[in-house]
Simulated assay, not measured.
Amino acid sequence: MIIRVPATSANLGPGFDSCGIAVARYLTIEVKEQQDSWFIDHQLGAEVPTDETNLLLTTALSICPAIAPHRLVMQSEIPLARGLGSSSSVIVAGIELANQLGNLNLTPQKKLELATAIEGHPDNVAPAIFGDFVVSTYFPKRSERTVVSVKHQFPDCGVIAYIPKVELLTKTSRNVLPQTFAFKEAVEASAIANVMIAAIIQGDLAVAGEMMSADRWHEPYRNSLVPHLQSVKDSCLALGAYACFLSGAGPTVLILTPLDKRDTIVKKLQDSASDAAEIAPLSIDRIGVHVR
């Protein structure tokens, strides 16, 4: 059995903690033979555990402690602490591992609720489960459905990830955000997000991109942590990109482009980034978590 989970990009600028897209880079978990104890075979570095302390297994065993140990092979194209949903992909894979080995028959909605409770917000886990573009919100104190989500097809476009070689932990990136927001500023920030979502639904990436690049919720406060953001944004927008925005908590920047301008923008970014970042042409993943 192979479980495959896509990378994700959360926020899309103003859709803070609620909007996200799935992109075509993957975490793959291959389930091998049953054995006496769990072991995860991987080449991801010494800091990633190979035993039950791995997030994959702490997640799976928290949901179904009785599942029998297996040897697992973990491969990931999703870099750690770069804003592409690396931890969310592992959580979603852990839930699916428990679902398959425990014969739990979890619904997608139940998977989303479990993943959100572990992750804390649904912006990454929802597109990792459903694929494509998902808008979602979390109500942790509700007794009934705690997560409400809506999936919609994201318009076809070029997708480019500017992935710096340095990490930025989500906790560090969240610590620079304000604790309160003035009412007038909140209304403006909310309106920008609303127009962005409406434009995506209409397939109007020109308007959506304008809103994505005009976030008020988080990017202005994180600029000091991602000094490359503004220069990448200026360069790509000048070449005709629809939008440039911080992917999740950063430091990755995601660029959306017309398909006929993608290669030109990729080359420009490669020339300017040198060895400081990986420039990765991507596409939207429409499926989400997949088992075969």
Rank of each mutant, 00 (worst) to 15 (best):
A243L: 11
V253T: 14
T172F: 04
E167W: 05
R216I: 03
I192Q: 12
D204Y: 09
H228R: 02
A249S: 15
R174I: 07
G203W: 00
A206I: 14
L177P: 02
I200P: 03
D234G: 08
F181L: 13
S213I: 09
Y242S: 03
N223T: 08
S235H: 07
T170G: 06
F181D: 02
L246M: 15
F245G: 09
G248M: 05
A206Y: 07
R222L: 00
N175H: 10
P220H: 04
A243P: 05
E219K: 04
Q230S: 06
P220N: 03
P258M: 12
A249T: 02
Y221K: 01
I201D: 09
V187K: 07
T180G: 03
S190T: 12
M212T: 13
L168D: 00
A186F: 05
S235K: 08
A189M: 12
K233C: 04
R216C: 12
M212C: 11
D234L: 06
L205F: 08
C244T: 14
S231F: 01
V207Q: 07
A241D: 07
P178G: 09
A214R: 15
T172E: 14
W217E: 04
L177F: 09
A198G: 10
D204G: 09
D204A: 10
E185S: 11
E188S: 05
L168S: 00
E167Y: 05
